[in-house]
């Protein structure tokens, strides 16, 4: 998978690049609008991450450029601007998602994977992890061909955990993924624990090994070891 990151803040760009390289993604970086347009027109990317405020141009123009020449490329706008107009313009221009800074890298990762999954062919849309198989279109979860009935939140949680497998996930990032802006309603994150517990029980009931490790003081990690 090949990504292009258009972002003028070097420190942030490095973090994002490192994060995706660990996912075995090729993540290229363009620090300004001109480099970005050059790269877009030379190489093919599966997904492009675009910051709207660039020193020498408007990220929205890059979105237009991409849509015109390579309509199959996934586009995620990452912007510090939370203004409604930009969000609507961005989505109307054909970007697949809009993420406001600051965001959790795990959240960005989950969104990138969702975009790539949606844009790829039918067959590869399935999500697999160990004994777990998920059909995102049907919202169908199976362990060893046996169907598991999950609540909406449990399903979202499982997809998020698999998207960020082998990584430490903070409780906050999980809470924000599941509840968005309402995450701050939770005075402590015990609430996530309930969902984690239920999900783990449902998976293990069908003979799935315990993939979920709790990391003290931080959060959880989903891995096969």
């Amino acid at each position: 998978m090949k990504l292009l990151l258009i972002e003028d803040e070097k420190a942030l760009a490095t973090s994002i690049q490192n994060y995706f390289q660990r996912e075995n993604f090729v993540c290229e970086w363009a620090a300004d609008y001109r480099t970005a347009v050059d790269k877009i027109n030379i190489y093919r990317y599966d997904c492009v991450l675009i910051d709207l405020m660039l020193p020498d141009g408007d990220g929205l123009d890059a979105v237009r450029e991409l849509k015109r020449n390579f309509p199959d490329t996934g586009i995620i706008i990452i912007s510090a601007k939370n203004s409604l107009d930009d969000r609507i313009t961005g989505l109307n221009l054909g970007s697949d998602d809009y993420l406001t800074k600051p965001f959790h890298l795990s959240e960005l990762n989950a969104r990138v994977q969702a975009v790539i999954r949606r844009r790829s062919f039918q067959g590869s849309q399935q999500i697999r992890f160990g004994k777990i198989q998920i059909d995102p279109q049907e919202h169908l979860v199976q362990v060893d061909q046996q169907e598991i009935v999950l609540t909406r939140k449990e399903y979202d949680l499982l997809v998020y955990l698999i998207a960020n497998k082998n990584r430490v996930l903070t409780k906050e990032s999980i809470a924000e993924h599941l509840w968005g802006d309402d995450a701050d309603l939770m005075d402590n994150f015990d609430f996530i624990y309930t969902h984690i517990k239920n999900l783990r029980k449902k998976l293990m009931d069908k003979g799935c090994p315990d993939y979920l490790k709790s990391i003290y003081g931080v959060g959880y990690k989903f891995s096969e070891q």
Binding site: L12, A80, K101, H104
Partner: peptide
């Protein structure tokens, strides 16, 4: 927001 994004991403790393 941008420095905050840098802080969050570095911590996550």
């Amino acid at each position: 927001q941008t420095p905050l994004a840098v802080i969050s991403s570095k911590i996550e790393g």
